[in-house]
Amino acid sequence: MSNINIISNESVPSSKKKIIVLGSGPNRIGQGIEFDYCCVHGLLAIKECGYEAIMINCNPETVSTDFDVADKLYFEPVFWEHLWDIIELEKPEGVIVQLGGQTALKLAKKLHERGIRIIGTSFDNMDIAEDRGRFSGLLKELNIPYPEYGTAFTADEAIEVANQVGYPVLVRPSYVLGGQRMRIVINDEELESAVVNLLKHIPDNNILIDHFLDRCQEAEIDAIFDGDDFMVMGVMEHIEPAGIHSGDSNAVLPAFNLSPMEVTTMELYAEKIARALNIKGLINIQFAIKDGNVFVIEANPRASRTTPFIAKAYGVPFLNIATKIMLEEAKLKDFKIDKKLTGYAIKEPVFSFEKFPNVNKELGPEMKSTGEAIRFIKDLRDPYFRTLYKERSMRLSK
C-alpha cells in the first residue's frame, strides 16, 4: 500500500475585501515591540474602513498576534515563501509594509515583482530612500545639503572614495536593520578592515562611504504626507552627539536647543523629500546640524521606532490616521489633530547588557538597545535631563 500525504488547510477565505499587514517578526536589537504598536493601530484602522484585516507575524509576545486584534491571524514567519502562499489563498486588495519595520519593508521588492499592490508609498519610491546612493542623488537634485559621500563594492574602491570625501568616514551598507555593520573609521587601515568584515557578513552589498560630521547635533522628524498635505508629527532632538545610533539616543520632544530657523529648515527639507518620493503615509527623516547648517543623513519611508513615542506623548492616534491615508480612505484635512504636551517628553533607550556580559557596551553607529521607555518632564531644569545633558557635554569634550 502506497503512502499518501494529504495536505489540509483550515483557513477558509471570506468574500470580503482584505488588507494584509506584515509584522516585524521576533523582537531583536534594532526592531521590536514599538512596531507591534504600529501594526495594532493599523489593523484597527483597516477594520474601521470596512476591510477584513489580516495579520502575518510570528511573535507570541506581541499584541498584534492576539486573536481578537485582527480579523484573521497567520502565525507564520515573515518570510516570502509563507507570505506568497497566504496571498495566493486570500487574494487581498493589497499589503501594508510600512508598519512592520525593516523586516516588512524588505519584502516590498518581491511583492512589486509579483504585481501585488503595496498599500501606500510605491516600491520604487521606497527603494530610493532605502538605497543610500539613490537617496543621496535625490538630495542633490533637491539642493538639500548632505554629507559628502561615495559608493563602493570593494575595499580598494572604498579607500579611494574615503580619501576623496575626507576622514573620518561612516561606512554603512544599504538595506540593513538597526545600523547593522555601520562603523566610523579614521584611516585606510581601519576602513579596509571594516569593509572586508562587512562584505563577509553581507556579500554583494552596495557600501556607502559618508564623510562623518563630527561634534554635531542630531535630530529627526516623523511626518505624514497624503499626496497633497504634509504634517510634521514631531521634531525630536537627540541628547547624545553624532555617531550614536538614533535607537540608542535619548530623544527630546519637542526640540530643546535648536534655533527656530534650524527647526524650520528641517521641516522644509522633510516636506521636499516627502513630495519628491510621493510618500503615502509615514516617513522618518534624520538630520545632523553643525554650525547652524542642516544636513540630511537618511530617510525611512515607514513607521519608525519613534512613531509610537510621538503618538503617546501628544495623545494623537497618528498610526490610525496614517493607515487610513495609505488606504486612500481619508486625507489629513479630514482629521482634527490637537497635540497635548505640557513640558517635554524624553525617549529613553533600554539596554540589556546584564544579559550579555561579554558584549562591548560602548555606543556607536550600530544599535545596541533592546527597547525604549518614555519619561515626561515639566521643564529643562529637571534633574534627570540635566544629568543627561551633562553626560553629553563630557562626551563632546573628549
Results as ranks from 00 to 15, higher is better:
2 S>M: 09
7 I>M: 13
9 N>Y: 04
14 S>T: 15
14 S>C: 07
17 K>Q: 14
20 I>S: 12
21 V>C: 14
22 L>C: 11
23 G>A: 11
25 G>I: 07
26 P>L: 12
28 R>Y: 03
30 G>A: 00
33 I>T: 11
37 Y>R: 08
38 C>D: 14
40 V>I: 12
48 E>C: 09
51 Y>W: 11
55 M>L: 15
56 I>D: 06
56 I>Y: 01
56 I>G: 12
57 N>P: 09
59 N>L: 07
60 P>N: 09
65 T>L: 10
65 T>D: 09
72 K>Q: 13
83 L>T: 10
85 D>N: 13
88 E>K: 15
90 E>S: 12
91 K>Y: 10
93 E>C: 11
94 G>W: 00
95 V>T: 06
96 I>N: 04
107 L>H: 03
112 H>W: 13
114 R>H: 15
114 R>L: 10
115 G>M: 05
116 I>L: 08
117 R>L: 08
117 R>P: 07
117 R>D: 08
120 G>N: 04
121 T>H: 07
129 A>Y: 07
134 R>D: 14
138 L>P: 03
139 L>W: 01
144 I>A: 09
147 P>N: 08
151 T>S: 12
151 T>L: 13
152 A>S: 09
153 F>R: 10
155 A>M: 00
159 I>K: 10
161 V>Q: 02
169 V>F: 02
170 L>D: 01
174 S>V: 05
179 G>M: 05
180 Q>E: 02
184 I>T: 00
184 I>V: 13
185 V>L: 08
188 D>K: 11
189 E>N: 11
192 E>I: 13
192 E>H: 08
200 K>E: 10
205 N>A: 14
206 N>C: 12
207 I>D: 00
210 D>L: 01
212 F>K: 00
212 F>H: 06
213 L>S: 03
216 C>G: 15
216 C>K: 04
218 E>V: 06
224 I>V: 13
229 D>Q: 14
230 F>P: 07
235 V>Q: 04
236 M>F: 15
236 M>A: 15
241 P>W: 03
246 S>M: 01
254 P>M: 04
255 A>N: 11
256 F>Y: 13
261 M>I: 06
270 A>N: 06
270 A>L: 01
272 K>E: 08
273 I>V: 14
279 I>H: 03
280 K>Q: 08
282 L>Q: 04
287 F>Q: 00
288 A>N: 07
289 I>N: 01
290 K>N: 07
291 D>F: 00
296 V>H: 03
298 E>S: 00
299 A>V: 02
299 A>T: 01
300 N>M: 04
305 R>Y: 11
313 A>D: 07
315 G>A: 13
332 L>E: 07
334 D>R: 06
335 F>N: 07
336 K>S: 12
339 K>H: 02
340 K>T: 10
342 T>C: 06
343 G>L: 05
343 G>H: 12
348 E>F: 04
350 V>G: 02
351 F>E: 08
353 F>G: 08
356 F>Y: 15
357 P>Q: 05
358 N>G: 00
359 V>H: 04
361 K>E: 09
361 K>Y: 05
364 G>P: 08
365 P>E: 03
367 M>H: 02
370 T>C: 09
375 R>K: 14
379 D>A: 11
386 R>E: 14
391 E>Y: 10
395 R>Q: 08
395 R>L: 15
398 K>R: 15
